[in-house]
Write a protein that binds this DNA or RNA. Sequence first.
DNA 1: GAAGAAATACTACGTAAGTAGCACTAAATC
DNA 2: GATTTAGTGCTACTTACGTAGTATTTCTTC
Lengths: 232, 232
Amino acid sequence: MIGENYIDLLRENILFKDLEEEKLQGFLTSFQEEVWPKNTCNITKTPTLFKFYIIAEGRVKIYRVDPESARELTLFLLKKNDVFDILCLLENCEHRVFYETLDEATLLSVPIETMREWIVKFPQINKSLLPYLGRQIRILEEYTSNVVLADISSRLARLILTNINKKSNKLELINDLSNDELANLIGSTRAVVNRHLQQFKKDGILKISRKKVEIKNLELLLKQAEKNHSSG
Amino acid sequence: MIGENYIDLLRENILFKDLEEEKLQGFLTSFQEEVWPKNTCNITKTPTLFKFYIIAEGRVKIYRVDPESARELTLFLLKKNDVFDILCLLENCEHRVFYETLDEATLLSVPIETMREWIVKFPQINKSLLPYLGRQIRILEEYTSNVVLADISSRLARLILTNINKKSNKLELINDLSNDELANLIGSTRAVVNRHLQQFKKDGILKISRKKVEIKNLELLLKQAEKNHSSG
DNA sequence: GAAGAAATACTACGTAAGTAGCACTAAATC
DNA sequence: GATTTAGTGCTACTTACGTAGTATTTCTTC
């Protein structure tokens, strides 16, 4: 059972937003609040096979690791009101990925079987789920073609561009990440990302400080995102 | 309206398989049969925004192109009883990809709005759709991490391995593709794929002839799939 | 504010993959 | 069966990326 204050969260959630107020109230009893410390991987303790999570606060990355090279690839960087793990929810079999918090995170958990029942019972959830899955597919298609067809500087520029808040015009979600984490987000390595960040700095595109990226010249950044150095 | 003989197709289809016989019969009136010639891109003529397709015969690839380098990336290679475009179905906005037939293909089309209505009206379709979408997401996750974390020879070996028919032990679906098409499937180029195919041949792993790949040594192929040359 | 940890900046180097070009060959097409 | 086209095999070359190593800076925390 979680507090009333979480009603607002559910009301803004992509899966629950269309439900009537009284039903959301009823849901509160099924949720549990969990706090995960920063930089922890709770997969062994709390398998996503049994629980479905909504992020109330903090960031969680879903990532893969190549055991040989120890290289990481971040598949999704989840934030407030994102949910996981959608694949376990749909397929009831293990999703071979890791989860790790980038901040201290507050999560709402619900038994995954309960969530499955809700999808069947409440058409509104089901109806919201479909376009949500579509968006996931679209994001992954974009990711794959980016990695294959664009070079690192383009990918880095695009990563930054897609995380600019349209209203504040400021970088969000990834603005306080280390070079290492940025590299994981575009399928590269720390040293290479730093090399390109330095070049961006030289070119007057970005202002860089420790765990901080600021945009100085949006126009040039847009050009970098489009430019594919492999051709012309 | 299509012929009775397509009932068997629908009965085996991932989305329609759970529907009662009489309902499938009723569906027949909504479908149209279309034949697309080999190597054609029918996107402009028959936008997937308005129709939903089931493949009855032949192969269709969904791919992206980088306009600058003209390089292609095949996202999905669809075969009999696969459907497209699932993203247009879910999101009702343009899916920025191309479609092209690799063989002469026979397709069943249904107005996409009709398909949307069916999803709402028949829970069985909706229920089948969810794990189908999950599989798409899983495939794309695998694709992305492959491209980032594995080198070309591993990706080529894995591509071949995933297309071996478990029963016949023979290569299917991709066994008659050109080096060019194989390259598109792993995010590389013709010349590079050929280089590795030649090496596989030298190593006694494959037998290669024009538009034909045969497996000679499965064990060695499995080793290639696991080996990541970038480490060790 | 000293000591330690974490993140960054930079240099040097090796290499897989991409590109270009061309000869050769099988297979459509007329 | 002559001609064209598509696909393959191969050589030579270039380069962006990844790796390694190290110095430096910035934060943390005791």
